[in-house]
Design a protein around this nucleic acid. Structure first.
Length: 238
DNA sequence: GCGACAG
DNA sequence: ATCTTGTCGC
C-alpha cells in the first residue's frame, strides 16, 4: 500500500498536538467507497514495559472474509501512551506495516477513534490522511463524546455526540455485549462505515478485520524475539 | 483546581 | 496495551 505522505514522528507531545491541529483539516468525512472487495484491519501489540511496537495489517476478501494477506512490522518508540496522542506511539510501526502491504484494500479499520477525538484526528483519521485511503476507527471504548446505550438487538446504534454534533456511532455488533464505537477515519461516510463494521462481524464483538489483526499482532509479538519483519501471503483460496 | 482519558 | 485463573452466564 503506497504511503501518500509522511512527516516526522519524533515529536514532543506539544508538537504532536500542533501537528494534529494542522492535519485535521485534511480529513474527509464523506466519500463513497463503492464496490468493496477487500477490507483490512490494522492493530498493534507490545509487551508491558516495552517500547517495541509490533504492528500488523490483515487483509480480508469481502464479503466472504477469507484472509488474503498479512504483513507485520516492528519499530521502537520513545513516545509514551498519552490519551489523544496514540498515533504518535503506534503510528510509525503501523505506517511501515502498511507500506509492506501488496494489496490495495478498499478500506482499512484501525483500533481506536477516527474523528471522535478531542482534536478530530484519532489514529484512524491520522493514518487515513497519510495513506490517502478510506479508513474507519473501531474503538472498544470512548475517548471523548457521549453516547446513549444502543437497543439490545444486534445492529442497533446510538450516535456519539459532542454537543449537538454526531461524531460517530455506538454499534451493537453482538447481543448482550458492550457496543463498539465507530467513527469516520477518512474518505468514507459514517453510514457506510457502520454498515461495513456490521457486515464484517461474525459472532464476536469485534469485526473480523480488527479481530484477525488483533490475533496476528499478538502472534507476532510472542514470536518476535526482537526481530523486525515478516510477511505472509495467501493466494485466493476460493 | 479536579476528574477523564482510544491503546 | 499487558499481566493473569478461574468462573459466571448465555
Amino acid at each position: 500500500m503506497k504511503i501518500s505522505e509522511t512527516h516526522p514522528f519524533d515529536l514532543t507531545p506539544g508538537e504532536a498536538v500542533r501537528l494534529q491541529e494542522v492535519l485535521r483539516d485534511r480529513v474527509r468525512l464523506a466519500g463513497d467507497v463503492g464496490e468493496v472487495s477487500l477490507v483490512a484491519g490494522a492493530d498493534a501489540s507490545y509487551a508491558r514495559g516495552s517500547d517495541e511496537i509490533h504492528a500488523v495489517v490483515v487483509v480480508l476478501r469481502y464479503p466472504d472474509l477469507a484472509v488474503v494477506e498479512r504483513v507485520a512490522a516492528s519499530a521502537g518508540t520513545q513516545f509514551p501512551y498519552i490519551p489523544g496522542l496514540l498515533s504518535f506511539r503506534e503510528g510509525p510501526a503501523l505506517v511501515e506495516a502498511c507500506r509492506r502491504l501488496r494489496s490495495e484494500p478498499d478500506v482499512v479499520f484501525f483500533d481506536g477513534q477516527g474523528i471522535a477525538h478531542p482534536r478530530g484526528l484519532g489514529i484512524a483519521s491520522h493514518m487515513g490522511v497519510l495513506l490517502d485511503r478510506p479508513t474507519v476507527g473501531v474503538a472498544k471504548s470512548l475517548l471523548t463524546g457521549t453516547a446513549a446505550e444502543p437497543e439490545a438487538g444486534r445492529g442497533s446504534t446510538a450516535p456519539i455526540l459532542r454537543d449537538t454534533e454526531t461524531i460517530g456511532m455506538a454499534v451493537r455488533t453482538k447481543e448482550r455485549t458492550k457496543p463498539v464505537y465507530v467513527s469516520v477515519g477518512h474518505r468514507i461516510a459514517l453510514a457506510q462505515a457502520v454498515g461495513l463494521v456490521l457486515a464484517t462481524t461474525r459472532g464476536y464483538r469485534l469485526p473480523e478485520p480488527t479481530r484477525q489483526a488483533h490475533l496476528f499482532a499478538n502472534e507476532v509479538r510472542r514470536g518476535a524475539g526482537g526481530g523486525g519483519r515478516q510477511a505472509t501471503l495467501f493466494s485466493g483460496g476460493g
